[in-house]
């Protein structure tokens, strides 16, 4: 674009508006390794003691951070795996296969995709209690998977839609049945989509708070989001340096994944608009 206008006023305005985020984020990082006198804004000494939580629980009675991290990995990993493996077949069926009720299924997925799932949480809570899945990691994984699924199917359908029909027609004319065509010819074309959806579901579950909070509040199945919220909530005199260290520890995988796979994930944001 040519610059037949002055950019600095826009830059300045943006900079001022971005200040809160920049400040919050800068202090998120700085405060984890420094101490600051109350009331002052400038840190006065370097320290690593806020990271002690990695080796010993910050307060007595708190779970070990590594056990919680493992839970979170299990939660996010399983969710991502199930979402991807279920979406990969349903997305194809909706995009390419003739079947009874196809129109109905498409409408259903689209409706669910927009549907505010959080409104169902009371019924789900009661159902999990009745089936004994309440307070288990498996229960939360199943629920999170189900809630992510319409989005996943929709995204996968979108990726399948971009594979040229002719590839499939050629495969059929070459003598391959529909399953082989899918497995050998179409699936390799949507690998980038699978990776993107996998990452996206992983991050979504990694950040999820309400579901674990409501459906598995117990210590044994807590994940980093509920662990951190309990830490903040129970504290009478907030130790923000500790919160920020735990928070940074929690956010680090998210930011790393975004830094590496930025472009891939933006694809999904372009296609799906779940806010």
């Amino acid at each position: 674009m040519t610059s037949n206008f002055k950019t600095w006023p826009v830059t300045l305005l943006l900079a001022v508006l971005s200040l809160p985020i920049v400040i919050m984020f800068a202090y998120l990082i700085v405060d984890t390794v420094t101490d600051t006198t109350a009331g002052s804004l400038i840190p006065d000494r370097f320290t690593l003691e806020h990271w002690r939580f990695l080796f010993e629980p910050p307060q007595t009675g708190r779970a070990d951070i590594w056990a919680v991290t493992l839970n979170t990995f299990l939660f996010a990993g399983s969710t991502s795996l199930i979402v991807v493996s279920v979406s990969v077949t349903s997305g194809y069926a909706l995009s390419r296969l003739n079947m009874p009720f196809r129109k109905f299924f498409l409408g259903g997925v689209l409706t669910l995709h927009a549907f505010p799932t959080v409104t169902l949480i009371i019924a789900i809570f009661l159902m999990l209690q009745m089936t004994g899945l309440y307070n288990t990691l498996i229960g939360v994984i199943l629920v999170k998977t189900a809630l992510e699924l319409p989005f996943g199917i929709w995204i996968m359908k979108g990726f399948y839609d971009t594979v040229p029909w002719e590839i499939e027609m050629a495969g059929i004319a070459d003598g391959a049945d529909r399953f082989t065509v899918w497995r050998k010819l179409v699936l390799p074309q949507v690998h980038p989509g699978l990776a993107a959806l996998g990452l996206f579901s992983f991050l979504s579950a990694w950040s999820e708070f309400i579901l674990p909070q409501v459906l598995a509040p117990d210590g044994a199945s807590q994940v980093l989001s509920t662990y951190m919220q309990n830490l903040i909530k129970d504290d009478r005199a907030p130790d923000f340096n500790l919160f920020k260290s735990v928070g940074l520890f929690y956010a680090l995988p998210v930011m790393t994944i975004y830094l590496i796979f930025n472009q891939k994930l933006m694809n999904i944001y372009g296609g799906g608009t779940k806010g």
Partner: peptide, 19 residues
Amino acid sequence: PSQNRNVGVVFQNYALYPH
């Protein structure tokens, strides 16, 4: 079915399997 017809098809965009 098409699979058992023994026809060869050349498409406008060739439809080569990219992978």
